[in-house]
């Protein structure tokens, strides 16, 4: 194991081409899927938080449950849509980066929605009343509320990113772990470990941990700056 660790370090330090191509692909897929899902989940979470409608509590409960959805179930679900015989089969997306991105977007959607909802519903009642008493329009109120919840929204997005960058099921089932194409850090890690190629697996693991750490550090730095 000691030699594997040394080799892993060497791979990272030497800037191994395949290692960094895989890492770059992973980050690219996850950034894109998080962005796509955020564009839908932030507005949806906002509407659920700020509007009263019948079935609101049920909706929140459903999204909370979906947060824990197993990645393989999401993989299966999206697979059934994208496979040759599925409703979107003629698009030919299965085993392409696009399929991974769609699958990861579906996976992150309930997480971002739920956390955005949670962040907005935790805002003080006094915020809305303050905006009303000063005569803000509905649009002005919405913008200010989102701006006041910016850290909560950002942390919802980063949680979504954290979930998809580390998942295996969706990438494996929808991407197929195709070398130089749809291979991600997690699928590569699983494969290399099975092959007994611990050095590359370890190097990928280290990079994954560094990314997770960097995301968390950025988040806590922002929170500290905001509330210090």
């Amino acid at each position: 194991m000691g030699t594997a660790l040394a080799e892993a370090g060497a791979l990272i330090v030497s800037g191994d081409r395949e290692l960094f191509a895989i890492a770059f692909n992973s980050v690219r897929f996850s950034v894109l899927s998080t962005m796509i899902t955020s564009m839908l989940a932030i507005p949806l979470g906002t509407v659920i938080a700020l509007r009263e409608f019948p079935g609101k509590r049920m909706t929140v409960a459903v999204f909370n449950t979906l947060m824990a959805m197993p990645t393989v179930v999401v993989g299966l679900l999206v697979y059934s849509f994208l496979s040759r015989s599925g409703p979107l089969g003629q698009w030919g997306l299965l085993f392409t980066p696009a399929a991974i991105i769609v699958g990861q977007a579906v996976l992150a959607f309930p997480i971002v929605t739920s956390l955005v909802y949670g962040g907005l519903s935790r805002l003080d009642e006094e915020l809305t009343e303050t905006l009303v008493t000063f005569g803000a329009s509905n649009l002005q109120m919405l913008l200010k509320i989102l701006s006041e919840a910016r850290i909560a929204i950002l942390s919802a997005v980063l949680s979504g990113f954290g979930r998809v960058i580390g998942e295996v099921g969706v990438s494996m089932m929808l991407g197929g772990n195709i070398r130089w194409y749809t291979r991600t850090m997690t699928t590569a890690l699983a494969l290399e470990t099975q092959k007994g190629a611990f050095a590359l697996a370890l190097a990928l693991g280290i990079i994954l941990i560094i990314i997770a750490f960097a995301v968390n550090a950025a988040l806590s730095w922002m929170v500290r700056r905001e509330y210090a």
Binding site: D124, E126, E129, T130, T133, G135, K144, E148, E226
Partner: peptide, 16 residues
């Protein structure tokens, strides 16, 4: 009401 009066809460909300 909205152009000439304003209320200050007991626990006022100050923007971040």
């Amino acid at each position: 009401l909205r152009s000439r009066s304003v209320l200050v809460h007991q626990k006022p909300y100050l923007f971040h």
